[in-house]
Structures are given as C-alpha cells and as structure tokens.
Design a binder for these strands. Structure first.
Length: 829
DNA sequence: AGCACGCCGACT
DNA sequence: GTCGGCGTGCTC
C-alpha cells in the first residue's frame, strides 16, 4: 500500500515525475549510447510500453527505435533539459513482445553485442525503412524572384516550384544541385517559406492484393436471362456465395466455379452488376495440405514419453526434457502429441529444426496435423511471406511455429513448449555476430515463459546429456514397430589396402550388389564434396591454393574446375603444373564425385544420384532429389552430411560409410563427438522400413572409441568415455571457451589487434582464466581476411561476457568494433 | 552514420 | 555584414 500523498501543491510540483521512455535508436553509429531517453507526450502515455516501435527525433532527424524501458524521472534531473518527446508510435503491429524483448536483453548481455543488433535479430524488417522528409512551398504560388534572400535560396524556391510545389527532400537536393544546399534550405525553413513534413516510408509489403467481388449496386435488377451464359453463371455463383457470407468472393474462386473468363466478369463490373474490391491475402510459404492427418495410436515407448511431457506441460514451470530416442523411434509423433497438449492449455509452441530446407517432410507432417495454425519461418522466405507469417503469429492465428534457428525469436505469445529437434546439430549456432546458440536462447525463453523445453536427439550433445541426469530425460530405446536397429560392420581399410587399393571394400561391393539384385536402395556417405580434396604436382610439390583463403582448392571433375570450399573462388584446373611445367599434376583425396564415378564403374546399370551442395544449389533441387529417391527412381544415393540427417527412406537397407576418417582427424576436441554423431545418424537411415538394415563403415581407425560406439549404436558407452576425456582436459562441459577473432584485410592490422586484445585480457581477467594466444586462427586467412585469435578457457561459475566486456573497455574503438566474439564456440576455426 | 555548429576566408 | 566551405564532435 502506498502512503497517501501529503505533499502540498508547491512541493508536489517540485517532486513531480516525468514519464520517459528509454529507446534503442535505429542508427548505425559505432559509439552510441545503449539507449536514449524521450519524454512521453500525454496522448501516448497509455500506449508506450517496452517493445513498442516508435518514431523519435535524433540529432535533427527523425529515426525509428524500440522502447526498451519505461521509467519516471524527477523534474530536477539534469537530463530533463535535454529531453525531446516521442513523436509517435509506428503503426502496423511491428512492436515486439515481452518474451522477445527478454531475449534481446539476454543476448546483448551474454553475447556482448549492442542492443540494436540484438533487436535486429528479432524485429520484423520494418526497421530498415527510412524516414522520408517531404518539403513543400508554404505559399504554392511563390516564385524564386519573390524571395527576399540569397541567390541559392531563390534558386531553391524556383526548383521546388518546378517540381510542383512539393518534393521529397533527397529529390529536391538532387534537382537543385547546389553546393550550399543545407544553408539555403535551413534559411528558407527558418523564414517559413518552405514547410517540411516527415513520414515513415511504409513497409513495401503489407500483404498481397487480390481482386474479389461482391454483388453490385445494380444487382437487384438483374435479369439473368438476357446475359451471356458465362455471365449468367458468374452471377449465379456470386449470389450463391453471398447467401452464405458477407465476405467478398475471391476472383479466382468465382471464375473457377462459374467456368467463365475474366473478360465476362469485367463486363459485369462495368454494368455495376458486380462490385470489385481489393482484399489482402496472406501468402502461405508452404501450401497447407488439403486433408488433415489424424494422430496415430502411439507405441508404448511413445506413449510413455508423451505422458511425461504432458506432465511437464501441466506443471507450468520452466523445465528441460531430453527426449533421448534411437533413430527411427518416432520422436516426431511425440512432438506432435506434446504440441496438441500445449495448444489445449491455451499456449503456443515453437518447433526448431536444424535446417528447414532439409526438413520439408517434417514441416509437411506438422501442416498435415495442425493445418493453418502452423506458421513457417526461415531465412529463405521472401520479405512478403515473412511479413504475412509475422502477422498470423502476432494475431494469434498461428500458434505453432516451425522454423530454423531464428524461429526461436518468433512473435508468438505465451509459449508453453519449445522443441529442438536434433538438438546436437551445429546449425543451431549462428556463425556471425551475434553468435547465439538457439538452444541457449530456447532455455532462456522457456524460463521467462515457464515453458517446457524439449530437446530431441538420438545422439545428444555432451553438454545436454551431462545436464539431463539431474533433470528430465525420457528414453525411447525401441524403433517403431520394434524394428531392429541395423547391424553394423566395420571394415578395416588397413587390411583391405593390403589386398587391393580401391574406394570400396569387398564387403561393401558385395552388399551393394545384393541390394541391386533385390531392388533395395543404398546410401553411400562421404563427408567431402567434389572429386578430389586437393591437386598436387608430383614433380615439384606445388599445390593449388585459394587466392583468398589459406586452404588448398578442391578439384571438381563435373565442373572441370578448382573450387574453394570456404569462399566463392572457382578457377580452371591446370593441365600442367604452373610452377615447373610438369605434367604430373594429380588429384588426391576422395570426394563424392569420385565415389559416384567408382560406383558407375562397378555397377554400370545402377541408377545413381548424388546429393551435396553442388547438386542442390538450385532452388527445389534438394526436395526433388529426395522425392525421386524415395519414389525409387534411383538405386544408390551418394551424399555428404545432407544424406545423414533426419531423412526417412523405407526402402534403404544398406548404408555405406566410404570413410569415417574425415571427421575423426579434425584438430578439434569435438572431433570424436562429431564422428560418433555423424556415424550414428547416417547408420540410422538404414532399415527404417520392414526389411532390416545393414551398415558398413570403412575406416583406417576401426578401434577408435567413436567408431566402436557407433558400431554398437551405444550412446552411453561413447558418453562415458568422452565425458572422462573432457573432464581430464577441462573441456566443455567442464569449462567454457571464448574465442575472440580479429580479422582484417591487412595482416599486420589483424595481428596487432589480437596482440592488444591479449594484453588487455591479461590485464583485466582473473587469474584462474587461461588465455590461449594470440595466434593465427586455424583458418589463418578466410575470404581475403587475415585472421588472428585469442581464446580463453573459463572455469564454470565465471560469466564469460563480463571478462570480455572488461577487456574490450580498454581498447580503441576501431579494435572493439572489429573483434568477433564467440562465447561457447562450436569450432575454433 | 548524419547532421549541426563553429571557424575562417571571400565577396557584397 | 553575409555566404559558403570544411573540420570536429554529438546525437536524449
């Protein structure tokens, strides 16, 4: 209870408070304050709240911004003299909700990024819109010679007159072509000769316009008999429609039902028998299927998991549940059940999938079950599509969001469930600033909204699994219909090589032959695209290198070119060595193209498809490949990681891993984890139908624990060994890393920055923090930039962002702005 | 990034 | 005085 106010009026004046809004302004300046404060004018007092998009004056201009905070300040606060007022609220529901705002604050704090870049992650694209200034002559009849002022002023007035008396500021400036434009303009404004008006340029996309029709004013006199047959049918169809609803009838619908031409409809409109109106239709990025699917009866394993989740959802408390289910155990059905329950509780759900393009089938399942309640969100949407999906979510029409990483920011309200499918996937980490991890944000959002975070995987990340022991973990150890896990055979390439040097072992060739004979399908996996890894001159040792990156170029036989796998560089493959002129330029190291060629040698009649970045760059190519393979158009599918993830091909009974070694030998402490995940996932593509599956893994390291554990599909065995390794060497999850990258076109600039950064860290970071570097980054040059980095190992319990912030404080602005900050990096490269 | 402000030199 | 060119530093 507040004390009654006993102040006298005079005192009250003195202690009166001013309502202000702290606003993050949309200005790209390197050294702005986090927020600027503005007075809230009386008419807006009830409408200005955190998250609202406003229109504010800023250094003589008008800019857009988001309200971060509302507060009151005393009238005698020195700030008061500086305060300007909020001009207005930007219309059209572009504000962000409090759940999103929470994520903005958290990102800025924990990933050490400015509020504006955090807001740009969550806000709709309206922020890119500019404020335009329109100028007009106060007296439209005024001419240049009327102006009592300088020649430039007169010229300006005359120019404006020629433009019709009003103009957009930029246009006027161009048309006037005056070097002294600002001064003359200001003078005229001061004298009141010209007036200006500032308008926010409206979003270009507000929904797509479509023609629709109502019965026209003259319709009651309709004498249908005298119209043409087409027009009679049109009127009939429209009368029928109008009997049921007051909504206008979409033109395409009307024309289809009446089987009439657009011309005949236009004829009716001219006679006022029908009235045409524009309706706004919302583009659907994915077509909702015509018929809904019904939830199937859950298997005992699924039912148990589903019960646990309903329980969790009923608790109305933030919690994490790991759904640890073997490949093909039917996790999607469990998600669907949980979502249905979440909706029944009146809340929304967010479903994150690793890469939406690769998961079109998952999206279809969601659309089939929940129809138009599903919104889809990912980076490939057009601006218009994104806008429409935003609208549907904000209006509560779509309460389920399926999307890639950034869908964690979806503008739905009251989230009750967040699903991360394949939670171990590295695509949940954004690799540019701000380098956020969707799993961390998901947990943050879940806590804020008291939601359940459901992490699904057959091969959970070490971080997740180690934490799940104390909290919820639901296991599904059986495949659907009790189908057996595939049998896995490891082929030791060291032995095999003694017999014959070939890409495929005898075992793999025999197995492939058998599949062809039985009309079953095979997937061959190799995590490297192109024909060969690098090109080397056997005479002088020359290797083809990328001119922009510190890597060798891969040979692509199909395009007959050398390609860099890190930048866009493509060059011609040389016939002779450019260094010594020798002819012994040879390609080494196998890629998917080479695999494809070999398969055709062994099985000339086999129908072979290859799926990697090179064959799926065209829009829709990926979906087509998957569909055709599932339809049985191909016998063998060769591919990179793309074929490993989440695909469901019932007729695939053999999976061959051409080489498990590419991942094992990466110089990264997560190499074993990645290898295990990849092998287990790709093995999981086999035997998803009625026929049991077989997996053959070829490797030079058959005894490696990641290979061994994958062979037995034994996650826990892998986990026990890997977690010990991490504990001993103080790797995550037993410590946290931070990677700070200094990149610049100039090598010295980059390295000096890294040096200054390391010095600053040594001066500010507590002793228990281990500073690694400065040193050249593993990828020392990338896209024409030299890269140096400083890494830190930080004991648990110390917040990394604070350490980084402190060190950055002492650095020059130019350094600070160019350092890329990676908290909890997935890779140091 | 913009944009204003202030200082100075040229010109009415 | 007045205008215009340019460098510096601030933006509620």
């Amino acid at each position: 209870m507040a004390e009654p106010l006993l102040f006298q009026d005079s005192l009250w004046e003195e202690y009166a408070l001013l309502e202000v809004a702290d606003v993050v302004v949309d200005v790209d300046a390197p050294d702005l304050q986090p927020t600027y404060s503005y007075r809230i004018p009386d008419p807006l007092l009830n409408r200005i709240a955190p998250g609202v998009c406003v229109h504010v004056p800023f250094h003589g201009r008008e800019v857009l911004g988001y309200v971060l905070e509302r507060r009151q300040i005393a009238l005698d606060d020195p700030l008061c003299s500086k305060l300007k007022s909020v001009i207005g609220i930007v219309a059209d529901a572009v504000s962000i909700n409090e759940e999103q705002l929470h994520l903005v604050r958290w990102m800025s704090e924990h990933y050490v990024c400015d509020l504006l870049s955090a807001i740009r992650c969550v806000a709709p694209p309206i922020l890119v819109n500019k404020v335009e200034t329109f100028v007009r002559l106060t007296d439209p009849n005024l001419r240049g010679f009327d102006v009592a002022g300088s020649v430039p002023q007169a010229h300006l007035v005359e120019t404006l007159h020629h433009l019709g008396g009003d103009s957009e500021l930029g246009e006027l400036k161009d048309a006037a072509n005056l070097s002294s434009f600002p001064a003359a303009y200001a003078a005229l404004l001061r004298k009141g000769v010209i007036t200006e008006e500032r308008l926010v340029q409206r979003a270009k996309v507000v929904g797509k316009k479509r023609k629709a029709y109502l019965l026209g004013a003259a319709a009651d006199t309709l004498d249908a008999g005298r119209r043409s047959p087409q027009q009679q049918r049109l009127l009939h169809a429209l009368v029928e429609w109008t009997a049921k609803t007051t909504e206008p009838m979409p033109a395409d619908e009307l024309l289809r039902r009446a089987d009439a031409s657009a011309a005949s409809l236009r004829g009716l409109a001219e006679k006022n028998l029908v009235q045409s109106v524009d309706i706004i239709v919302h583009r659907a990025p994915v077509a909702a299927p015509k018929e809904r699917t019904v939830a199937p009866v859950l298997t005992p394993g699924q039912a148990q998991a589903a019960d646990a989740l309903r329980d969790a959802l009923n608790h109305d408390q933030a919690q994490t549940v790991l759904l640890f289910g073997v490949t093909a155990s039917g996790k999607t059905e469990v998600y669907l059940d949980a979502i249905a329950h979440c909706l029944a509780l009146g809340r929304s759900a967010i479903v994150l999938v690793p890469e939406i393009a690769l998961t079109a089938q998952v999206v279809d399942v969601f659309l089939g079950r929940f129809g138009e309640q599903v919104a889809v969100l990912h980076s490939k949407l057009s601006e218009g599509e994104r806008h429409d999906e935003w609208r549907r979510m904000q209006e509560g029409k779509a309460r389920i969001v399926v999307g890639a990483r950034s869908a964690i920011f979806a503008p739905v309200n009251n989230v009750g469930l967040i699903v991360l499918d394949e939670e171990h996937e590295s695509s949940y980490k954004q690799e540019k600033m701000p380098r956020y991890h969707a799993r961390d944000l998901a947990w943050e959002r879940a806590q804020f909204s008291r939601a359940t975070l459901l992490l699904g995987s057959a091969t959970p990340s070490l971080e997740t699994f180690s934490q799940s022991e104390g909290v919820g973990r639901v296991e599904m150890r059986q495949r659907i219909d009790n189908r057996p896990l595939p049998t896995v055979q490891v082929v030791d390439l060291r032995d095999e090589f003694k017999q014959h040097k070939a890409l495929f072992s005898h075992a793999l060739i025999d197995a492939m032959g058998a599949r062809l004979a039985h009309k079953q399908q095979t997937i061959l996996f190799l995590n490297r695209r192109g024909y060969a890894q690098f090109v080397l001159c056997r005479d002088c040792g020359w290797v083809a290198k990328c001119p922009n990156c510190a890597v060798s170029l891969a040979f692509h036989a199909y395009a007959r070119s050398l390609k860099c796998h890190h930048c866009e560089y493509t060059g011609r493959a040389p016939q002779a060595c450019p260094d010594c002129g020798g002819a012994k330029v040879k390609a080494f190291g196998i890629g998917t193209e080479k695999v494809e060629e070999e398969v055709s040698k062994y099985f000339p009649s086999a129908r072979v498809a290859r799926m990697d970045r090179d064959t799926t760059s065209q829009k829709g190519a990926h979906t087509r490949l998957i569909r055709d393979f599932r339809m049985g158009d191909y016998d063998i599918l060769i591919g990179t990681q793309m074929v490993a993830k989440g695909l469901d091909f019932p007729n695939v009974t053999l999976v061959g891993v051409v080489s498990a070694d590419t991942a094992i030998n990466m110089p990264d402490f997560r190499a074993a984890e990645r290898t295990f995940q990849l092998l287990t996932q790709v093995a999981g593509r086999a035997g998803r139908g009625v026929t049991p599956g077989e997996v053959i893994i070829q490797t030079f390291s058959p005894d490696h624990y990641a290979v061994q554990a994958a062979t037995h599909q034994d996650y826990e065995a892998f986990y026990r060994q890997e977690i010990e390794f991490r504990r001993e060497l103080k790797y995550p999850p037993f410590a946290r890393f931070v990677n700070l990258i200094c990149a610049d076109i100039n090598e010295r600039t980059a390295s000096e920055r890294a040096n200054r950064l390391a010095t600053a860290l040594e001066g500010t970071a507590p002793r228990e923090i281990e500073i690694i570097g400065p040193s050249a980054a593993p990828l020392a040059r990338l896209k024409n930039q030299f890269r140096f980095h400083v890494a830190m190992r930080i004991p648990l319990g110390i917040e990394p962002s604070g350490i980084v912030r402190n060190a950055l404080l002492g650095l020059p602005l130019s350094d600070r702005l160019s350092i890329s900050i990676d908290i909890d990096p997935l890779s140091m490269a």
